[in-house]
């Protein structure tokens, strides 16, 4: 129980730090919000992150692809929310208190993605980001990108001893790709 408290506190700290970063104009192009999906740590460029909110009730959207889990109201704006797990072909989970929705901006639209939890805000220099090997088929994945189709990956960032998979947001929400998977 105590540990859980600490965890949520920690999460709140990160969130606050994050919001500060989001609001400061000086945040450079090499900062990444990192989070977990299953066992892997992923990162999104902080520039595209609009907001982070705890998981909440979503309204089911009829006739939408399966990975679109529903829509939510963010201060009067309607935001579609998707689950990258489904997109990446992983097993679905039931969302819990630590689940987080990251609102990102991609090609002029605001979209939410559900992740297991928020980890950190990391600065990763470009020289420490390794480009993904160009593999088109899903069977020959990059060893580090675990079960994620490499086309969604922008690169692998190295921070100390750990690796962060940097996601290409626009690819994930690209409609043409959606057709293939759906």
């Amino acid at each position: 129980m105590a540990m859980e408290n600490k965890q949520t506190e920690n999460k709140a700290d990160i969130k606050e730090a994050l919001m500060n970063l989001l609001h400061s104009s000086s945040s450079g192009g090499n900062q990444f919000v990192t989070f977990n999906i299953a066992t892997e740590e992923y990162g999104i460029n902080i520039k595209s992150v609009q907001e982070i909110t705890g998981f909440r009730h979503l309204t089911y959207l009829p006739n939408a692809p399966k990975y679109v889990k529903g829509i939510l109201n963010l201060r009067g704006n309607i935001i579609p929310v998707m689950d990258p797990r489904i997109k990446f072909g992983m097993d679905e989970i039931t969302y819990d208190k630590t689940s987080v929705i990251i609102i990102v901006e991609t090609s002029g639209k605001n979209v939410g993605i559900i992740v297991d939890n928020i980890k950190d805000v990391l600065t990763i220099d470009a020289k420490n980001i390794e480009e993904t090997p160009q593999v088109s088929s899903r069977s020959s994945r990059s060893s580090r990108s675990s079960n994620v189709d490499s086309q969604f990956i922008e690169g692998i960032g190295k921070v100390g001893e750990k690796f962060v998979i940097i996601l290409n947001i626009s690819k994930i929400f690209n409609k043409e790709d959606l057709a293939k998977i759906a």
Partner: peptide, 27 residues
Amino acid sequence: LKSLEQNYEKVNGVSGTTILGNGDVGI
């Protein structure tokens, strides 16, 4: 009335969304 297209796309059978009294979205 709230546009669904602003952040998503046109959904067949749905003309838009609205925000209900409890803050949830209604179709």
